[in-house]
Design a protein around this nucleic acid. Structure first.
Lengths: 249, 249
DNA sequence: ATGTCTTTGTGAACGCGTGCACAAAGATGG
DNA sequence: CCATCTTTGTGCACGCGTTCACAAAGACAT
């Protein structure tokens, strides 16, 4: 979240590092799967494999929460599920509004992963009057005019923005003014928000571009000389395809 | 296990830090906006503000690419757009397949951000025979049986998985076997892939859970004493509000 | 009870990323 | 041509996150 201001206050929060917080949901998911298979206990090694992380990292992560394991045995699955859920605040109900019911907004509204983890879609909001009243995922879409009232009535503190980029900042400001303090932004824009408001960004285009970078590098390692020759038509920059160390000024 | 370290050959890549690569698309977007407004040059300070990052960080990021700025002036917008595009591999065409045309898959297919950045949706693939032939975003959906042929015919190296969690690993293996080496995974599962294959994950549920954590903490800072008193009914846990260190099992 | 075996919890080292602060580079004006 | 002013490029220090490696803790068998 490079968006707004410093989240320094958030980092220091409670001794739990941000990186650890980001992994807790991962552990929780793996643990829930184990729980459904009625597995009573699990070792750090096994759980780490299921979550796709290093076992030492997992143990250190858990150590921030407390000593919930038993040496020689492992972790009690049910107990750990509860502890992590509580730590993440999932034992309470989080009403969420989704603003912008296009393709993506509709997909989010239909996404089952929300309801199963303490999140409840309190309302769907769209600026298009033609959408108003139309049910999406069983919930009637409401017009943007109602935004403030909806937030207030439902005590919503988490908002999801799935509008076009042009509308995102304005929607963001209205959400914040109405009392929302956490925003999940799918619009390809940098949102600026006041201190105390958390913004997380999900950007499909950026993820693909990062993949493309690595993909290009992989391809370049094979047919490298060819690519360099191709790029040499440049101004004074010359071939930079692979020269790793020094760069010509 | 001697040195069970099979991953991270990618990190060292070309001297460009991973964190920098992740920001390049951000800069590129800001630069493109400037380009459309016909702004000829931009200083690191201005561009950093537009991208929502620190200006020193931006300059350091660019320094990994080369010396593309002019002291006392700033950066030439067009030139920088080109350089970053090239660095990210966006000057070439990347055919992409999307597997799993549910709500999310359809949203992705309709997402304009792909086409505008060198990505081309080569095919939509779904396991449901009823979907076959049905056009989504103007592209007819094809059945999973065709997967290998599609990948091969189009030279696809990037795949997007938008299937249910249960199908993701299997789809992943087929994609990889067919020649895909970069995967963007929207299914809430940990994919295991052979070395040399890059996976990036986008998980809506996890993002929300991270927000919930911060939101809970924010709420807890106000009515903290009350929450602690409430939680004291626990086993041996006692007040967890701020005692991070020792802890009886 | 005692020894062995398994697995946790963590101290310490290391590497990466960030931000400061400044010298070098170049533009601009006289 | 020289002085001044702007802005880049980067050396350096610091803090966070990751990983190793091992002692402590407990289960379990004898």
């Amino acid at each position: 979240m490079a968006t707004g201001r410093t989240h320094r206050t958030a980092t220091r929060s409670r001794g739990i590092p941000e990186a650890t917080v980001a992994r807790l949901p991962l552990y929780l998911r793996a643990l829930t799967a184990l729980s459904e298979r009625s597995v009573p206990t699990v070792s750090s090694e096994e759980l780490a494999a299921a979550a796709g992380v290093n076992s030492a990292k997992l143990r250190k992560d858990f150590s921030y929460l407390g000593s919930y394991g038993t040496r020689g045995v492992g972790y009690d699955v049910e107990y750990l599920v509860y502890q992590i859920s509580r730590e993440l605040g999932l034992t309470q109900d989080w009403p969420v509004v989704i603003v912008g019911i296009g393709n993506l907004g509709a997909a989010l509204a239909n996404y089952g992963g929300f309801a199963s983890r303490g999140f409840r879609v309190a309302a769907l909001i769209d600026a298009d009057p033609a959408m108003a009243g139309k049910p999406v995922a069983g919930i009637p879409v409401q017009h943007t005019d109602e935004l403030e009232k909806i937030i207030d009535d439902n005590g919503v503190s988490i908002g999801v923005i799935a509008t076009p980029a042009g509308a995102a900042q304005q929607v963001c400001e209205r959400l914040v003014a109405a009392g929302v303090t956490s925003i999940l932004n799918f619009a390809p824009t940098v949102l600026s928000v006041p201190d105390g408001v958390d913004v997380r960004k999900v950007d499909l285009s950026i993820e693909l571009q990062i993949l493309a970078f690595h993909e290009q590098r992989k391809a370049g390692e094979e047919a490298e000389a060819q690519a360099v020759a191709e790029a040499t038509k440049d101004s004074g920059k010359g071939p930079d395809g692979d020269v790793p160390a020094v760069m010509p000024a």
